[in-house]
Design a binder for these strands. Structure first.
Lengths: 234, 234
DNA sequence: GAGTGGTCTAGACCACCCT
DNA sequence: GGGTGGTCTAGACCACTCG
């Protein structure tokens, strides 16, 4: 692990340990350089990462300050999947409805940029958060990258399996979302009424090589899901 | 404007001008350094910014590549407000329903961290995208930062006014969102039925000083709004 | 092994905030 | 004016990819 990553972790841990609040000031660059025994550039890089993550904000000529902690009970929309989800706050479970090796539809093929005869794993799960129904998830994994999948693997975190067991690196994703009314099948699974509202998300995950490997559709239970997103200027 | 910002703009423009597609390779660091006459660090910084923005992805030992352009017709969820909204793609208009100087409610006071007797401007607007109803927006601006506001100012971009005319810098924001059913008043404004689905977003905007200055609530028309979000690992 | 991106440093100079 | 963050450079060395 690189130096700046360690500095990022340590500064973040420091904020937690010292119970620093919104607006509290961090040590100056000089102090941080001494404290972690690194150059100024490394501090700059670490602080920029923490700023992007929404942990701090920097004011030129004034100092570095802690950014307000989010409301509790909201899922981080940018990290809700495989990435470093803050799943400590929530207890996540899955009920596997299907795991099949199939010939993808046109739509799935187009999104995943599959070859002509390429097969994909179809995984359908009902996901729970704190023992409440969170969402229906339908995922398509290219067999080229995920050669084997089973029901028991799908019970656990699929992204953890992909990264640890298969040695792949998930790098970025595109999300597309809108709100719609539930159809009959969806409402039955979510234990809601047909026509009830739902957040519908399509997400395309890419490996570090830039190749798409997973296309997923999620339908969220509107009473059990709320999200937060932190934006940064520019 | 700093060098790295210029490099960011020029590289982005280059991608547009040369019609570069998903997966196309950019010049090497060496070439970029010569082309823009800057040091390697400046190229690194510029490319990291473009990576965060979802324009490119970098593979160590291999090169820098163009990331797929998004589907069209989706609003960038992270830039949908005052920031550099890609409003070239959409035509935005507003119908002002109310502009009043009021005593804030408890909830608004708590979010904006108002002083005891501080007043806020309340602005209610119906927002249109390509001449379709997009959302209802209720905003609260602290008078401390926005001393004057009028109906005609609210017709235009309020964020543009705040930044240009008042000289303030909007720096970051927190969004909280969930899906709900429309009540009677909301459905009337959006020309939908009571009980229809809607995306509900609360957003808190901060100045570069870290002080909150605007608290807004948005209720989106579910048939006229769809969004996209690009995530990056770590 | 050659090419290419990633990390890190020391140091110079600039821009901004505050009193 | 003193303190503090922001930009930029040249150069060294490391890590990864690919033929």
């Amino acid at each position: 692990m690189s130096k700046y990553q360690k500095v990022v972790e340590q500064i973040e841990q420091n904020i937690i340990d010292n119970h620093l609040q919104q607006g509290d000031k961090l040590p100056t660059f000089q102090d941080l350089m001494k404290q972690y025994d690194v150059s100024k550039s490394t501090i700059v890089k670490a602080l920029n990462i923490l700023e992007k993550r929404g942990v701090i904000y920097q004011i030129q000529g004034s100092g570095v300050f802690v950014r307000r902690r989010k409301r509790t009970g909201y899922i981080n929309f940018l990290e809700s999947q495989g990435f470093t989800a803050d799943l400590k706050e929530f207890q996540m479970k899955s009920k596997v409805l299907a795991v099949e090796l199939i010939q993808p539809s046109e739509e799935v093929r187009a999104n995943l940029k599959c070859e002509a005869e390429e097969q994909v794993y179809f995984v359908k799960r009902l996901r729970f958060i704190n023992d409440q129904i969170l969402c229906i998830e339908e995922s398509y994994y290219r067999q080229k990258f995920v050669p084997y999948l089973s029901r028991s693997i799908a019970e656990e975190s699929l992204f953890h399996y992909v990264e640890k067991a298969l040695g792949l690196t998930i790098s970025f994703s595109d999300k597309y979302l809108h709100v719609k009314k539930l159809d009959e099948k969806e409402s039955e699974l979510l234990e809601l009424e047909t026509g009830d509202p739902a957040l519908f998300v399509e997400e395309l995950f890419y490996l570090s090589t830039g190749e798409p490997f997973d296309f997923s559709r999620m339908v969220y239970h509107y009473e059990h899901s709320q999200f937060f997103v932190q934006s940064n200027g520019l």
